[in-house]
């Protein structure tokens, strides 16, 4: 069954210059392996192809559990000079949550 990340996880976006950070936190701890296995940095890079120009690094935090994505060149120059509406990229947490994955349960 195809589900959206929105169905099983929440996220908050942050900014540092032109770098975007995105957390991905499962509502239920048992869904963490699903996220860890499918929401790889490559998959996120593909999903956010129109948004993130640079590399994406993923950090695993199994004790929370959560994943953290650090996206380079993601804010069209950064908060202070970007011409975009959302210069901080604060709304982009919900762009990540649009991503689809395959759930094992049907």
């Amino acid at each position: 069954m195809t589900i959206k990340l929105y169905d099983i996880a929440h996220s908050r976006a942050g900014d540092k210059g032109n770098t975007l950070t995105l957390s991905l936190i499962p509502y239920k701890t048992e869904d963490y392996p699903l996220l860890r296995d499918q929401v790889t940095s490559e998959a996120v890079k593909q999903h956010l192809a129109n948004i993130v120009a640079g590399d994406i690094t993923r950090y695993e935090l199994p004790n929370l559990p959560a994943l953290q994505f650090v996206c380079q060149q993601a804010l069209t120059g950064g908060v202070t000079t970007s011409l975009t509406m959302d210069t901080h990229g604060k709304s982009l947490s919900y762009a990540l949550l649009e991503m689809s994955i395959e759930s094992e349960t049907d």
Binding site: S11, G14, K16, T21, Q68
Partner: peptide, 8 residues
Amino acid sequence: KEQLLYEV
């Protein structure tokens, strides 16, 4: 958790 990872 959301705040712990905010801007990290």
